[in-house]
Amino acid sequence: MRTVDRVLALVLGLVGLGGGLLVAAEVVHGLLGRPGHLLVPYGGTATWLREHTWGSGAVLAIGGVLAGLGLLLLVAELAPRRRTLLVVAGTDDDVVTAVSRTGVGRALEQSVAGLSGVDGTRSSVGRCTATLTVRTALRDLGDLEQQVRERAGAALGSLGLAQAPELRVDLQRVSA
């Protein structure tokens, strides 16, 4: 969201700067009694506004679009930002170390990548739960789930998180 905000800020900032200066120039142009427009051909827009009532479909559509965009922007900006980093436990109060949720997911996936019978992995890490999905073509799973759970649990423990998410393992059979 920060990147989207940054892009919006640059675009809207430039539009506001350019538009504000243009409108001010047009006003000065008009106040000096010069005929026509300076740079902005606003005649067509003025005519359109004189021809359409507030109840016309086009004006209502514009109102709807404005309201929709405004609501979207407002909700997006007021929504709490996702805390994508999980804090590592430490003894020094002056030092805060954190690892990204995707990083935690990668650690879990890599911990089981070498296991026999593991054909693919996927992970999803939240603040409370970390789900490791393992795809296998084995017909007889044997103790694969137990091995995955042990390795992933060890990997999660080795991260030393202040509040480790609960590990969930999901074994999915795929055809060989």
Binding site: D5, L8, A9, L12, W54, G55, S56, V59, L60, I62, G63, G64, V65, L66, A67, G68, L69, G70, L71, L72, L73, L74, V75, A76, E77, L78
Partner: peptide, 19 residues
């Protein structure tokens, strides 16, 4: 951006209320 969103929403809702 939240302020702009609020202004856009107000303008849009007012247009719809009148229209």
């Amino acid at each position: 951006l939240a302020l702009l969103g609020l202004l856009l929403l107000a303008a849009g809702v007012l247009t719809l209320l009148v229209g």
